[in-house]
Simulated assay, not measured.
Amino acid sequence: MTDTTAARARLRELIQELAVVHEKVTLSSGKEADYYIDLRRVTLHHEASALVGQVMLDMLDDAGIQFESAGGLTMGADPVGTAVMHAAGQRGRNIDAFVVRKAQKTHGMARQVEGPDVAGRAVVVLEDTSTTGGSALTAIEGVRRAGGNIQAVAVIVDRDTGSKERIEAEAGVPYLFAFGKDELGLA
């Protein structure tokens, strides 16, 4: 599927069908919600994964974001980075993926950012969904310490709970999202 509109529509359907769980939950931020968006059910799905890569890459391209590598805090961002890498490869573009650990390793190479080196490279920090922006900010901190130049933060679903404002204010980079909660019929 190469048409952006069709890819977005199908991905939205899959998110609504596979990822949205209507029940009271406590989010990783500690906040409570009446629904949970389990995007790993989408990012690791045989059909949806390719759509994630296509939609995210199209969104970043449409925004004029130039980058050489994409990734974020393990584990929500891992399949998103891989999907973007593969979508770019299908278009003849060389975009690497990376993984950011919550804390720097104390053994081996003692790295916090794994994968091809991000030092001196233009990178995008990815996330599946964001509530407070905390995971993306942790990833940004790790990538900046590793020498990466953050161009933007991009998420699949924004919960409209302040992540965009917090990330743009604290990290000074644009925050993009493919779908808002309203597009998914969530209040």
Rank of each mutant, 00 (worst) to 15 (best):
R145G: 07
L18Y: 09
R41W: 08
T131W: 02
V113W: 00
E168A: 10
R145S: 12
V157E: 15
A97L: 10
L57W: 01
A97H: 04
D61H: 14
H107Q: 05
G134D: 02
T129D: 12
R166P: 09
R12E: 14
L176D: 03
Q151G: 05
L39E: 02
R8F: 11
L57H: 04
L11W: 00
I156M: 03
T4R: 15
P116Y: 10
P174T: 10
Q151V: 12
S69W: 02
F177M: 11
A33D: 05
S163F: 05
E127P: 01
N149V: 15
E23H: 08
V113Q: 01
G172Y: 08
A19K: 00
D38R: 02
G172A: 07
M59W: 08
T43Y: 08
V125R: 03
T43M: 12
D78S: 12
Y35Q: 04
L60V: 15
K181P: 14
N94G: 15
G71F: 00
A77W: 02
Q54N: 13
A6F: 04
V124I: 06
A9D: 14
T131P: 04
H46N: 13
M85Q: 06
V20W: 10
Y175H: 08
A178L: 07
V118T: 00
G142W: 01
E165K: 14
Y175R: 08
T4F: 14
Y35G: 03
L186M: 12
A171Y: 00
R8T: 10
H46R: 11
